[in-house]
């Protein structure tokens, strides 16, 4: 059975069909990349999965359950985390605080006990912090721990955003152009991290990416998207040699 799947999903914005009848099957434990020119509907698919948009037709399933009735803020609960194309961090907070937001979904305390800061709240805070520190160690973020987001470089912010998504302990991670704006070395690091996320943490990764080197290096399977339609699915090599894909990229 498939893990995350889209069945004939269509969405239009004011008459323009941004995603047309798209079906996708992402298997548990794989790294799946969406490629395609700008405006092909890649980010729209992400926004559909994370429920920021609602499809006009079709169904989206995750782990055997339909996502159709769920709200965007239900996603972390069921195990879907995401990053954004143009970094959406909490700018007036430190790196540590940003990552800690990710632990909010697992809290059992209510607001009254938090105002009183009871013993159990403190205990939960400690466990949250242990987990967040692990994520920071994993991504080499310790040096930025107490730094405010506003003062960080673009590349570091991207990594912090990845860390914040990991702090949710998701089953699926949606990465929207994780390498855009990163330097060559940073992209190199990112490739290792993405592979480790899959191998060590056992998280399924779905990513949108323009950097084909990165895609070739890490992706198990690739889908090419043009004008809201999937024109080719398969391993990175076969998709890139698919005549339809070549035509869409170079031809016309």
């Amino acid at each position: 059975m498939s893990f995350l799947s889209l069945e004939n999903v269509t969405i239009s914005f004011g008459g323009i069909r941004a995603v047309k009848n798209v079906s996708l099957d992402i298997k548990e434990g794989e790294i799946f990349a969406l490629v395609g020119p700008n405006g092909a509907g890649k980010s729209t698919i992400f926004n559909l999965i994370s429920r920021l948009y609602k499809q006009n037709e079709g169904n989206i399933f995750f782990d055997g359950k339909s996502l159709n009735q769920l709200k965007p803020f239900d996603m972390p609960d069921i195990g879907i985390a995401r990053t954004f194309q143009n970094i959406e961090l909490f700018g007036n907070a430190t790196v540590l605080q940003n990552l800690l937001v990710g632990t909010n979904v697992r809290k059992s305390s209510n607001f009254l006990s938090e105002i009183l800061f009871t013993r159990s709240v403190r205990k939960e805070e400690v466990t949250s912090r242990v987990m967040v520190e692990e994520v920071m160690d994993f991504l080499d973020l310790q040096q930025y721990r107490e730094k405010y987001i506003m003062g960080l470089s673009y590349g570091t912010r991207k990594i912090v955003e990845l860390g914040r998504a990991l702090a949710l302990k998701p089953k699926v991670l949606l990465l929207d152009e994780p390498a855009s704006g990163l330097s060559a070395e940073e992209t190199e690091d990112l490739a290792f991290w993405i592979e480790d996320i899959k191998k060590i943490m056992g998280i399924t990764v779905l990513m949108v990416e323009h950097n084909l080197n990165l895609v070739n290096k890490v992706a198990d399977r690739v889908a090419a998207l043009v004008d809201g339609e999937i024109i080719s699915v398969g391993n990175p090599k076969s998709v890139q040699s698919d005549p339809k894909v070549i035509e869409a990229y170079i031809g016309v």
């Binding site: 803020f73 972390p76 985390a81 909490f90 700018g91 909010n104 105002i115």
Partner: peptide
């Protein structure tokens, strides 16, 4: 506590606050 972080999340970026549950 988590409440304070939720407040500042909503203040700084609604869309990612949503994505953070």
């Amino acid at each position: 506590s988590p409440l304070g972080r939720a407040f500042s999340a909503v203040r700084d970026s609604e869309v990612s606050a949503l994505a953070m549950g």
